[in-house]
């Protein structure tokens, strides 16, 4: 996938590029245009975000209304994805579930980014003992499997949307914090930072002007590639009945209904799983394309 992006779009004007580097926007458009999977990723993500924002207007039926048609109906002109065991419209439920998934992803990754950034900066800039303590805690947190840790948290505070967000945030913070810490440590003794310090720059200036911009880019790209993981965790916990609770539609809840009636109709399982797969493909492709645009050094060698 990446071979095309690396060669084709820039080949004809290689000489011009030496004189004037094209703007970031131009380069982005060229890369996305020349990178088929990246373009697919952006389109998928745009569609999913659009559907999540406008869910109430897009859904043909109320996602929780029962008996909108026959039970367990296969796809038809009235019900594009069919209906579930209570005769609820699957398409409406999938769209509403997308809203829940996006909400969890945004909240959990937002919390994980904030927590990871601050803890990573503290570990990187703080004294040695604090750094070591935090590293130990990060390692301990990373040794819990996400779902098993999630189940332990559910035992303590009960299942809810908030529990899912909390679990994902806590298990993701160590990963982000470690990256921020490594970057901060690497930057700490680079000459231009030393020069700033010699000129009397305070810690705040160094942090906000030099460290953050360097750290934020790779972190955001990583976060966009983590969206599928968050959504799979939400769907998984909800599937087990430990996440979003039933009347609220979630892809995991749809899959659980589908699993219970798997011998009667395949449609709930199919319609609950396809959006999860599309989200994963979309965000992975988009993340890879973003990485190529913003940080060519991180490009995977194929």
């Amino acid at each position: 996938m990446n071979e095309t992006s690396a060669t084709s779009p820039t080949a004809p004007d290689a000489d011009d590029r030496l004189l004037s580097e094209p703007s970031l926007l131009t380069r982005s458009l060229r890369l996305v245009g020349g990178n088929r999977s990246g373009a697919i990723g952006f389109v998928l993500v745009a569609l999913i975000v659009f559907a999540a924002i406008f869910a109430p207007w897009l859904a043909p039926y109320d996602p929780t209304a029962i008996m909108t048609g026959p039970r367990m109906a296969p796809p038809s002109p009235e019900h594009w994805l069919g209906t579930d065991n209570l005769g609820r419209d699957l398409l409406s439920r999938v769209i509403a579930g997308g809203r829940v998934a996006m909400l969890v992803a945004a909240a959990a990754l937002g919390a994980a980014l904030t927590g990871g950034l601050s803890l990573g900066l503290i570990a990187g800039l703080g004294p040695r003992w604090l750094d070591n303590t935090l590293l130990l805690i990060f390692d301990a947190l990373r040794s819990f499997p996400t779902i098993v840790f999630g189940l332990a948290v559910v035992t303590i505070i009960g299942p809810s949307l908030f529990t899912v967000i909390l679990v994902v945030a806590i298990t993701s913070i160590p990963i982000y914090a470690r990256i921020v810490r490594t970057q901060t440590l690497a930057l700490k003794n680079v000459e231009f930072i030393l020069a700033e310090r010699a000129m009397g720059a305070g810690i705040a200036r160094i942090l906000f002007v030099h460290v953050l911009p360097n750290v934020l880019g790779p972190l955001l790209i990583l976060a966009s590639m983590d969206v599928p993981l968050v959504i799979a965790t939400e769907a998984g916990l909800s599937f087990l009945g430990m996440g979003v609770r039933p009347p609220t539609p979630s892809w995991g809840v749809i899959l659980n209904d589908g699993y219970n009636f798997i011998r009667n109709s395949p449609w709930p399982v199919i319609s609950g799983s396809i959006p999860i797969i599309l989200v994963t493909l979309g965000f992975t492709f988009m993340g890879e394309a973003l990485r190529d645009i913003f940080d060519p050094r991180l490009r995977r060698t194929h």
Binding site: P228, A232, A235, G236, F239, L255, S273, I276, I277, T280, L281, T284
Partner: peptide, 8 residues
């Protein structure tokens, strides 16, 4: 296959 979670 990577884009399909194990429970799906």
């Amino acid at each position: 296959t990577i884009s399909i979670p194990s429970f799906v």
